[in-house]
């Protein structure tokens, strides 16, 4: 290419075949601005520090993992948690038990709205403390209606229960006909044989379709990297349950699979000071939930008109 800048007199005439000073400046300006715009658009990448490792990236779909592969994955995740928190967790992959279908029953007569279940759940399931992710929302409703428009989350009186109100905790309803599962484009969430809808956090792509589909506001998204203080980390973990999540994945109540699939009660049931929360196997006629569904005034599957058919029942005493 000729050097057009050597002769300024000629460049004014702008020879048609060469590159004039002006057109050089113009194209370099365009190039510079293009590069600057490119750099600007790539700048957010600098904040990316949580790149998936090769093993994470190449991990197979949960249902396709052989037991040996699953073992390797569990060890790898244990290593990851240990590297991050300095504590070695006990991570298992728990499968649904035979002849078990979980059902939850919540006594609206008893609930006093103390929110202990909310925080027991956060502690058990390693939810992010900042920003907060909470699976259970306790709604305060005025007596005499079930109008969700009148529900209030932020009640903060000196003492509960307050006169004239009742409290209605809402969490994942573990629907028999779950809309969240239908919309998931990658099958990262599915319903298991015991009725629990679970999420594979390593398969979730973070599209948040499920959160939009859920009529109960039960799904929560990790918009940032979850922050869990080391001293509050629950080391008893399950793959489909409470292992620490990454940024950009969905999470929700899973009936504490790390507890319930080894026969224990969920954390919210154990902490409820008034015994309003009942949990058990509906296929067992001797279970509390069977007794409640047979003998109590079980009034609602929340938003039952949507046809989601929740496994979470609200009932009254007497």
């Amino acid at each position: 290419m000729a050097n057009p800048t050597s002769n300024t007199h000629e460049s004014v005439q702008s020879p048609p075949d060469g590159l004039s000073r002006r057109s050089f400046l113009r194209s370099s300006a365009v190039l510079a601005s293009g590069l600057a715009a490119l750099a600007a658009s790539l700048a957010p990448l600098r904040h990316l520090n949580d790149f998936p490792t090769v093993e994470q990236f190449l991990q197979k779909y949960y249902k396709e993992l052989t037991p040996e592969e699953m073992k390797k994955v569990l060890r790898r995740i244990e290593d990851e948690v240990e590297r991050e928190y300095g504590l070695r967790p006990h991570l298992r992959d728990l499968k649904p038990m035979n002849g078990v279908e979980f059902v939850y029953a919540l006594n609206l007569t008893r609930c006093i709205g103390c929110r202990k279940c909310v925080h027991a759940c956060v502690a058990e399931n390693n939810q992010s403390r900042n920003p907060e992710i909470q699976y259970i929302r306790v709604l305060r409703l005025p007596h005499g209606s079930l109008d969700m428009e009148k529900a209030e989350h932020n009640y903060n009186p000196e003492m509960v229960p307050e006169k004239g109100y009742f409290y209605m905790p809402v969490q994942c309803q573990q629907c028999k006909n779950p809309p969240c599962v239908k919309v998931c484009p990658v099958h990262a969430t599915w319903q298991e044989a015991d009725g629990i809808t679970v999420i594979d956090y390593n398969w979730c792509i973070g599209c948040r379709y499920c959160a939009a589909a859920c009529p109960y506001w039960a799904r929560h998204f990790n918009f940032t990297k979850p922050s869990i203080p080391k001293e509050r980390l629950n080391l008893d973990m399950a793959y489909l349950g409470n292992r620490p999540r990454r940024q950009g994945v969905m999470e929700k109540c899973h009936f504490c699979v790390q507890r319930t699939r080894v026969g224990r009660y969920p954390a919210c049931v154990e902490v409820c000071p008034v015994g309003a929360r009942k949990f058990g196997n509906i296929l067992d006629p001797e279970s509390e939930v069977s007794y409640i569904l047979c003998t109590k005034r079980v009034f609602v599957q929340l938003k039952e008109e949507l046809g989601t058919s929740p496994r979470f029942f609200y009932y009254f005493d007497v």
Binding site: C114, R115, V118, H119, N154, N156, E158, M159, V160
Partner: peptide, 8 residues
């Protein structure tokens, strides 16, 4: 009655 845990 008792004191409720902190809200969201």
């Amino acid at each position: 009655p008792r004191k409720p845990a902190p809200g969201p």
